[in-house]
Simulated assay, not measured.
Amino acid sequence: MKTLTQRTSSPFRYDIVGSFLRPDALKKGRADFAKNKLTHQELTELENFWIRDLVEKEIAIGLHAVTDGEFRRSYWHLDFMWGFSGIEHNVLTQGYLFHGEETRADSARVINKIRFVDHPFLKHFRFLKEIVGTRAQTRQTIPGPAQFFSELVRGENEKSLDAVYPNREDAYHDLIQAYHDFILALYAEGCRNLQLDDCTWGMLCDMNYWKNQSGGESNIQALQEVYLQLNNDAIADLPDNLVINTHVCRGNYHSTWATSGGYAPVSKVLFGKENVTGYYLEFDDDRSGDFTPLQDITDNKIVVLGLITSKRPKLENKSAIISRIKEASQIIPLDRLCLSPQCGFSSTEEGNILTEEDQWKKIALVKTIAEEVWG
């Protein structure tokens, strides 16, 4: 057998997407804080306790890159958006429409020029890095710029955006600059492993979903070019030793999903032109299509196959997963493939419908399979 490269930077052969199920005590603490039964300091101390506990479990199971589980967030994306100057936490008339379920209706809208001034995620990362030390790489997950922009034009939010930015190009410029400034500040805190989570491409893979979201009025190809510009320009001219990857999925809320369809409608732009090191891709069921669009991956980028579902507790068949990895290796060489769950376990604080024990069994299975396939 050919000797495979040992990976020393993200993505790793066995990996994770980022979020973990929130412990019940942490959920209760956040609910108590919302009712003014806990102070902000008391909530922070509670979050600190459970993040320390999580980090020890991540390191004990052998993960090479660890996160804080997104334990300080209610949403995987909105909390980050609310941290910028010019962005307001608002509530829309409708949440995101998932398969058989509607999410909470929180959102983010523009009320002034978008700027990075300071951001709470910098302090969050600082704490995580301190407790991880040199035992593993410390990964920061944030929504991608395209995801941010798509929120600013969702529903009635677009009117607010147009009021502040009559010229849409000015909005692109300020959003890109705010991201770039944040990333440089994060780098100064010691971050060398950044992940851009981005469901926008998954939405564009599902024409029925997109028509419901946009009224069918948008030019899909033109929108892909906007998304590409936002994502690439935000991460241009950054230090060479900052590894930036992206995760693309089709929605992950309370074990439900939002969109379906293979990657073919977006693969030439997303896989061919986005300037990231690797892609964490959802491939856990038939909704994700086959591996054919991976032929558009360029520049020796890494593909992390999300073949283990985070939505259901039942463990996958090891032999079946190995067979699928071999199938993917007919398109992307095995040395450029890795394995992870298809998404996080708790993209919002509700979490998916499985137990913490189930969650760790899933990660253990990812590791077992990866060690067998890659050594």
Rank of each mutant, 00 (worst) to 15 (best):
N208T: 15
P145C: 03
S214F: 10
H180F: 11
I220R: 15
C191M: 05
R139F: 10
Q213C: 04
Q137I: 05
P143Q: 02
G155R: 00
N167D: 13
T141C: 15
L194Q: 05
N193K: 01
A163P: 00
E158S: 13
V132L: 01
C205M: 12
W201P: 06
E151V: 05
Q224H: 11
E151F: 15
Y227R: 10
C205A: 11
F182R: 01
R192Y: 10
S150D: 10
E189M: 12
M207V: 13
H173M: 07
A222V: 05
S150C: 05
Q224P: 09
E225W: 13
T200G: 00
T138F: 02
D197F: 09
R154H: 12
D162W: 08
N157M: 08
M203P: 00
E225P: 06
E130G: 02
E158Q: 14
N212H: 08
R135T: 01
A163R: 15
I183T: 03
A171M: 10
T141K: 02
Q224A: 09
Q177E: 15
C191Q: 03
Y179I: 06
G190V: 05
F182Y: 15
A188H: 13
A171Y: 09
R139G: 00
F127R: 08
G133R: 01
D174Y: 12
K211A: 13
Q177V: 15
D198Y: 09
G216W: 14
M203L: 12
K129T: 05
Y227L: 08
D198K: 03
N212C: 03
P143G: 02
Q137W: 08
W210T: 12
E217M: 13
Q221I: 13
A136Q: 05
L196E: 06
L128H: 02
Q213L: 14
V226C: 13
L152S: 06
D170N: 14
F149T: 03
Y172I: 03
Q140P: 00
S160C: 14
T200R: 09
W210R: 07
N212V: 04
M207D: 13
E130L: 11
E217G: 10
W201H: 07
Y165A: 01
D170K: 10
V153M: 08
R135V: 03
P166S: 01
R135E: 07
S150K: 09
Q213Y: 11
D206W: 08
V164Y: 04
V226S: 15
S214Y: 09
Y227D: 01
G202H: 07
E169F: 06
R168H: 11
Q213P: 00
G155V: 00
R192I: 08
Q195K: 04
M203R: 06
D170G: 01
R168D: 05
R139K: 15
L204P: 04
A185R: 12
Y187A: 09
A136D: 02
A171P: 08
A146Q: 05
Y209K: 07
C205H: 09
A171S: 15
E217I: 15
F182D: 04
V153P: 03
G215Y: 11
I220T: 13
L175D: 01
Q224D: 11
